[in-house]
């Protein structure tokens, strides 16, 4: 097989994958968003009413704002806790580092639905936490029962492993001699972390944040099973359009807006980066 054939095959597969499973669906979603639905029928009339509805109706804006708030809080917390866990494994894990890092992937051995339902059992009115509290004569913690807090806990639980893994992989790429050098020149542990470790792993940190934030924005399971009456988030409302209400065109417009918003978030996150300052070369360690 010639180099040319190999290259065409190797590049052709991901290109075909992207075109068939990403670009074409996105295009069909965009087209759908400019049509309308009436009583479960698609009406092929070009219009922008769905976008007007999503961007001006209070309900959909509320879902969007609610989702942004929850996603930012969850992503910040997951990234912060992810940093602590990844740093601890990297620093103190010794020969068990890889095992400890892989342990965070164990929850992924089960499906997302199972994990959320298990959490429902833990946080619910008769779950382990509130059940134990009530058994001891204390009042149950209402914030844990079908609330945005419970939904946030669910999202945090779902996406923390991603944050830990990404930050840990980023730390693996860090040259420890730089920290030693900083310490030789008098920097304490905290200062060497602030000036060396953290900035040189900013790429990993921001990727961890983005990989939590974007799926949180479109999350459906956690708000549905844990969120309660006030817990409808944007992704859940969007899924509703494609399910029982059959308002697909409106759902498509919500999807396009979510896509554009996620794209904007990625651009904003990328703009925070100075690749030279982070030591990122794109070619791995020399």
């Amino acid at each position: 097989m010639t180099h040319k054939t190999k290259a065409v095959l190797l590049l052709g597969i991901p290109t075909a994958y992207l075109v068939l499973l990403f670009i074409l669906p996105i295009i069909s979603l965009i087209v759908l968003s400019f049509w309308k639905t009436e009583s479960y029928h698609l009406v092929y009339e070009w219009n922008i009413q769905n976008y007007v509805t999503v961007l001006t109706e209070g309900a959909y804006l509320t879902f969007l704002i609610r989702s942004i708030v929850v996603s930012v809080i969850v992503s910040v917390l997951a990234t912060a806790i992810g940093w602590i866990a990844a740093y601890a494994i990297w620093t103190y894990g010794g020969r068990f580092r890889l095992l400890l890092a892989l342990a965070f992937a164990v929850p992924f051995f089960t499906g997302e639905v199972l994990r959320v339902i298990a959490l429902q059992g833990l946080l619910g009115p008769v779950g382990l936490i509130n059940g134990t509290l009530m058994k001891w004569g204390f009042a149950p913690v209402r914030a844990l029962m079908y609330s945005n807090v419970a939904s946030g806990i669910g999202l945090f639980y779902l996406y923390l492993p991603i944050a830990v893994t990404v930050i840990y992989l980023s730390l693996l790429n860090l040259d420890r001699r730089l920290i030693d050098a900083a310490k030789i020149f008098g920097a304490g542990g905290f200062r060497s972390f602030i000036e060396i470790t953290f900035p040189l792993n900013l790429v990993g940190t921001l990727i961890a944040f983005a990989l939590c934030f974007i799926p949180c924005m479109s999350a459906t399971l956690s708000p549905r099973f844990l969120g309660g009456p006030n817990g409808t988030l944007y992704g859940m409302a969007m899924a509703q359009q494609f399910g029982e209400s059959g308002t697909w065109a409106l759902g498509a417009a919500m999807g396009v807006i979510l896509f554009l918003f996620s794209l904007l978030a990625v651009v904003l996150i990328a703009s925070c980066l100075d690749l030279r300052r982070t030591g990122f070369t794109g070619f791995g360690r020399n």
Binding site: S39, Y40, T232, A237, Q241, S245, G246, T247
Partner: peptide
């Protein structure tokens, strides 16, 4: 039965949820 207008019913439901 089928809602007479799923679009109107969806709006009622979304307004309630929000």
């Amino acid at each position: 039965d089928q809602p007479s207008s799923p679009e109107k019913w969806e709006r009622v439901w979304s307004n309630m949820q929000a």
